[in-house]
Simulated scan of single mutants.
Amino acid sequence: MNKNIVLIAVCLFLLLFSCKTREKTSNLNYMQNADQIAVDASNQTNFSTIQVGDQLVILVTAKDMSVVKPFNQNYSASELATYTAGSTNLPIQGQSPTSVPTYIVDSEGNIDFPVIGKLNTSGKTMSIFKDELQDRLKKYILNPIVSMRLTNYKVTVLGEVARPGQYVIPDGNATLFNALGLAGDLTMYGKRDDILLVRNINGETTKARINLMDANFFNSPYFQLKQNDVIYVSSSEIKEKTARLDPNTSTYIAVAGTIIGLAGIFITIFKK
């Protein structure tokens, strides 16, 4: 009888501890949905519309570059002479031209474009806006080609970094290491040999796993980041194991001691 009481008390404690532990571990999501988190963030970013305050660099080219000069008023004649029809090699800050000709989206979502006048960007992606501008230019230019990019270029860093979030790269030129540096580098729990990078290529979402411990990464197409890339740093197994240790373990042990002590008292009483 006495042994049964002690056994019941211990079993009750173990059951309580087991339930609490399962409750804690069931809430862990490390690596369970990392891919989906990164893909969702990539989709949201890549299909996001032009925002107020965005800075657009726009270059119009055609077979006869003299015809497009009125539509490139922010460029000098010598600067335009360096471009050919269909050029996409747009200047970045610190390169020629010395002052990058940008169109800043105003509070109403407009930019003031040469000859054409106000153009509204509200609710439009970069791709849609570029196509619309190109169509408008056909009224003045034979087979115009529009090259466009954001100078407030963005990448997103999530997961085991010190400061996860979205970061603007002013010159549109960044490596994975630059992005991780902006995010405060990996935490001690970040997996350096299994970083997920999600990129949109021609409307298709692609994923790549990157090992920062391998020097061959410098030759990878993912070393240099592209607009709207999403980086997800996964948690190491060490953190998962640490997280599974219930912080209230010491409390449970104390409770167990109390239960066993009470069981001992009851046993003594029953003996009398």
Score class of each variant (00 low, 15 high):
Met1Cys: 09
Asn2Pro: 01
Leu7Ser: 13
Leu7Cys: 08
Val10Gln: 06
Val10Ala: 13
Cys11Gln: 06
Phe13Pro: 00
Ser18Gln: 09
Cys19Asp: 06
Arg22Phe: 15
Glu23Ile: 10
Tyr30Gln: 14
Met31Asn: 13
Asp35Phe: 04
Val39Cys: 03
Ser42Lys: 12
Asn43Ser: 09
Asn46Cys: 14
Ser48Trp: 04
Ile50Trp: 00
Asp54Cys: 12
Gln55Ala: 11
Gln55Tyr: 06
Leu56Asp: 01
Val57Gln: 10
Ala62Leu: 03
Asp64Ser: 14
Asp64Gly: 09
Asp64Asn: 15
Met65Thr: 11
Met65Asp: 07
Val68Phe: 11
Pro70Trp: 12
Phe71Tyr: 15
Asn74Thr: 10
Asn74Phe: 09
Ser76Ala: 12
Ala77Trp: 05
Glu79Met: 05
Glu79Asp: 15
Leu80Thr: 11
Ala81Val: 04
Thr82Val: 10
Thr88Leu: 09
Asn89Thr: 08
Leu90Ala: 03
Gln93His: 10
Gln93Thr: 15
Gln95Val: 04
Thr98Asp: 14
Ser99Tyr: 04
Pro101Gln: 08
Ser107Ile: 12
Ser107Glu: 11
Glu108Gly: 08
Asn110Glu: 07
Asn110Thr: 08
Asp112Leu: 11
Phe113Asn: 03
Gly117Trp: 12
Thr125Pro: 01
Met126Ile: 03
Met126Ser: 02
Ile128Lys: 00
Ile128Phe: 01
Asp131Glu: 15
Asp131Met: 09
Glu132Ala: 04
Leu133Tyr: 04
Asp135His: 01
Lys139Leu: 10
Tyr140Arg: 07
Ile145Asp: 00
Arg149Asn: 09
Val155Asn: 03
Val157Trp: 00
Leu158Arg: 00
Glu160Gln: 08
Ala162Glu: 09
Arg163Glu: 07
Pro164Arg: 05
Phe177Thr: 12
Phe177Val: 14
Asn178Phe: 13
Leu186His: 04
Tyr189Ile: 06
Gly190Thr: 03
Lys191Leu: 14
Asp193Ile: 05
Asp194Met: 09
Asp194Arg: 10
Leu196Trp: 03
Val198Trp: 03
Arg199Tyr: 01
Asn200Val: 07
Asn200Arg: 06
Asn202Ala: 06
Asn202Cys: 02
Gly203Phe: 05
Gly203Pro: 00
Thr205Arg: 03
Thr206Cys: 02
Lys207Leu: 15
Arg209Lys: 13
Met213Trp: 00
Phe218Tyr: 08
Asn219Arg: 07
Asn219Leu: 13
Phe223Lys: 10
Lys226Thr: 04
Gln227Ser: 13
Asp229Val: 10
Ile231Val: 15
Ile231Ser: 04
Ser234Gln: 02
Thr242Ala: 14
Ala243Pro: 02
Asp246Phe: 13
Asp246Lys: 08
Ser250Cys: 05
Ile253Val: 15
Val255Glu: 12
Val255Ser: 10
Val255Gln: 11
Ala256Met: 15
Gly257Ile: 13
Gly264Tyr: 09
Gly264Asp: 08
Gly264Thr: 09
Phe266Glu: 07
Thr268Met: 10
Ile269Gln: 04
Lys272Thr: 12
